[in-house]
C-alpha cells in the first residue's frame, strides 16, 4: 500500500476529520449572508440607503443567470441590461472572501481564476427572492437560540479548527 493510500484509509477510519473547510472571517455589514445552495450562489445585501431594506441577489451555477430584487420582490434599479448590479458584484466579492476563489469558481462552473470574466456569459432572469430571504431569516434565527448549560457530548465530533 502506498503512503497516500494508507493516509486515505486512516482518514476514512477516523472519527474526527475536517470534511469541509471552515468559512473565513469577513466584514458582514454590507453582505450579511452568502451561501452556495440549491444550485445558486445566493445571498442578502444590505441597502446602502435604507437600513430596513435588503436586496436578495443570486447567480445560478453553470448558466450564470443572475437576479437581484428587494425582499418584497421589487426589482433592483441597478439591474439594467446585461450587467450585474453593485449588489451582485458585492455578493461575488464577499463569497470569495468567505469561501475562497477556488471553491466559488468550482461551484459556479467557471474555468480559470477570473470569476468576473467567467460570469460575463450570464443574463438577467427573475428568481423568487422569498426562498433565499427565508433561508437568511433561518440563518439569523440560530443567534436567537438560547445559550445552554447542559453538555452536548456529541460536539466532541466537532473540535474547533479540526483538519484532516
Amino acid at each position: 500500500m502506498s503512503n497516500e493510500d494508507a493516509d486515505d484509509l486512516a482518514w476514512e477510519r477516523s472519527a474526527v476529520v475536517r470534511v469541509t473547510p471552515s468559512a473565513k472571517a469577513r466584514k458582514l455589514a454590507k453582505v450579511p449572508f452568502v451561501e452556495m445552495a440549491d444550485g445558486r450562489l445566493q445571498g442578502v445585501v444590505s441597502s446602502g440607503s435604507d437600513i430596513a431594506r435588503v436586496y436578495v441577489s443570486s447567480i445560478a451555477a453553470e448558466t450564470h443567470a443572475f437576479s437581484c430584487s428587494t425582499n418584497n420582490n421589487r426589482p433592483c434599479g441597478g439591474l439594467t441590461g446585461g450587467y450585474m448590479c453593485k449588489h451582485l458584484q458585492s455578493l461575488v466579492a464577499e463569497a470569495v472572501l468567505q469561501y475562497g476563489n477556488e471553491r466559488v469558481g468550482q461551484f459556479l462552473g467557471i474555468e480559470g481564476d477570473d470569476l468576473n470574466a467567467g460570469l460575463r456569459d450570464g443574463s438577467k432572469e427573475s428568481a423568487p427572492a422569498a426562498v433565499v430571504f427565508n433561508r437568511f431569516l433561518r440563518h439569523l434565527a440560530y443567534l436567537e437560540l438560547p445559550a445552554r448549560n447542559a453538555p452536548v457530548p456529541e460536539m466532541q465530533w466537532f473540535p474547533a479548527g479540526a483538519v484532516g
Binding site: K24, A25, R26, H139, L143, E144, L145, A147, R148
Partner: peptide, 16 residues
C-alpha cells in the same frame, strides 16, 4: 467539566 453552548452561523469564527 463545565460545558456551555450556543447557536452560531458559519461567518462567526475565531475570537468572535
Amino acid at each position: 467539566r463545565a460545558s456551555v453552548s450556543a447557536g452560531k452561523v458559519d461567518t462567526i469564527v475565531g475570537p468572535a
